[in-house]
Design a protein around this nucleic acid. Structure first.
Lengths: 202, 202
DNA sequence: CCACTATGAATGAACGTTCATTTATAGATT
DNA sequence: AATCTATAAATGAACGTTCATTCATAGTGG
């Protein structure tokens, strides 16, 4: 017998693997609990319902990504041990890192996005995560525009474009991994940032 | 009594509305046939199975988009009645036009993308559509790079970035329409093209 | 001994599919 | 023109399956 939080994490991990392998619509309680090596009823004991398990799984993936992003983009970190150019570089590295761009995570991410327009609970989790990314990246870009004295550049517009570009690259990596490699995706994103902030990226 | 092709289109349209409103996983044969104002058994009569109906619906949406894209990007059109700059402008207008960016269409698009990594048939349809877009946009960009004598610009990389940006903007328009408007999305995409081809966009 | 965790057979609702039946259309026959 | 016949389209009740959820029972730690 394990603690409550251990079992919850075990089930969420199993749910992620199931969604990545079988898709959201084919993910059943049987599949998840078997993947976790547990009995059928256990998921309802810890999560009350399937709907709640799926929502908690989305929250888990979202939180994991946001934590990584905040570790880079919170002011105390980005101003203390490095210049803005370094922060930009670390942001790029993170968003196209192995941990973030592994098939399993991206498949889960887009599976929920696909259902988000019909399910308010998913919509809420996804959009609030997006809002946080947008806010933080916009702050960074504003600081860079200020520091580099870039004329006629709108930080908000650049941030919107950059985040959309990253989302689009993730989608390409997921759907057509043979056409677009991670390294090439990173080159594309880097080129965008170089055009925007030529003084801050070599 | 209607002809076979009329009924098929009627059912596909109903399927699109159901997916947009209820999501792919909650789209049942009951829902689709009721939405179409027909009886339950009719969908199996015309499409054999639900799986086939869903695949045909994806093909229909994909074909519609590709037709619009090809009308702009086939050589005979783009070279006869306009310069490359006009073609670029028309491409931008099309990809962020009302017809393409309406919620209904985008919701369907991303619903299938979300399941694509688990369903080979969706994967195939999506990726072959993506490949076509990529090829055509790359051809256009290569011609523009050549005409404008842009140095150190890789048409393939620019096309990858541009299409990823468009995908990302669509996703933002779908999930957070209040944060990003269509007009602003167009501005962002235009800014990308202006940076890439300053001589071809005012 | 009590409270908590875990099991998996049982349950009922919902689903895709089938098919006997009905309805509509077009061509042939009188 | 009117009637009959053949073919296809359309219906929806019924069927078998699958699913999430429940719960009686068993196991475990304090």
């Amino acid at each position: 017998m394990r603690s409550r939080s251990e079992r919850r994490l075990q089930l969420i991990d199993a749910t992620i693997r199931c969604i990545a392998q079988h898709g959201l619509s084919a993910t059943t309680m049987q599949l998840v609990t078997r993947e976790a090596g547990l009995s059928l009823g256990i998921a309802n004991l810890h999560f009350q319902s399937k709907e709640n398990l799926l929502a908690e799984t989305l929250r888990h993936v979202t939180r994991e990504y946001n934590d990584g992003l905040l570790a880079i983009l919170t002011p105390e970190n980005s101003t203390s041990d490095g210049c803005l150019a370094d922060t930009l570089e670390r942001l790029l590295d993170f968003q196209l890192s192995h941990g973030v761009t592994q098939r399993q995570k991206m498949a889960v991410w887009f599976a929920y996005y696909g259902e988000a327009s019909a399910r308010p609970i998913y919509q809420k989790i996804c959009s609030s995560s997006d809002r946080l990314s947008m806010q933080k990246v916009e702050e960074l870009f504003a600081a860079i525009v200020n520091e580099g004295e870039y004329k006629d550049r709108d930080p908000q517009q650049l941030a919107t474009g950059y985040l959309a570009l990253i989302d689009g690259l993730w989608l390409s990596l997921l759907v057509a991994p043979r056409v677009l490699t991670k390294a090439r995706g990173k080159d594309v994103a880097r080129a965008y940032l170089q055009q925007a902030f030529p003084k801050h990226l070599n």
